[in-house]
């Protein structure tokens, strides 16, 4: 087991950790808008870290270039999809959860 495998393994499992956190956040948080926070941030970074780990494992060739394209596309598209979901929910009149209503 050489050093490159270990570094890429650290990146991949850090990405898995953030994806699991995003999933638990989507399950636990109280309403749609707060779930967007978990989905929009943690999932983007988790995917980015996993693909970064695979790029380090692969070295520089055509496949790692494709993975770089996937990472760039994810970092543009994932916040855009989050924004589209938030805007659609806001226009349809979904009320955000407030702390005072809970008590």
């Amino acid at each position: 087991m050489d050093i490159i495998t270990i570094i890429s393994g650290i990146f991949i499992f850090a990405g898995c950790f953030f994806i699991v956190i995003a999933s638990i956040g989507v399950l636990r948080l109280p309403d749609f808008y707060t779930r967007l926070h978990a989905a929009g941030k943690a999932d983007t970074l988790g995917q980015g870290l996993i693909f970064l780990g695979l790029i380090i494992y692969e070295g520089f060739n055509l496949i790692s270039l494709k993975m770089l394209f996937i990472v760039i596309f994810i970092f543009i598209a994932n916040p855009t999809a989050t924004h589209a979901a938030a805007k659609a929910a806001f226009i349809s009149g979904l009320k955000p959860w407030r702390k005072k209503d809970d008590n």
Partner: peptide, 9 residues
């Protein structure tokens, strides 16, 4: 919207 968000994830 929750369902669409979950399917996106």
């Amino acid at each position: 919207f929750d369902r669409i968000l979950s399917v996106n994830l």
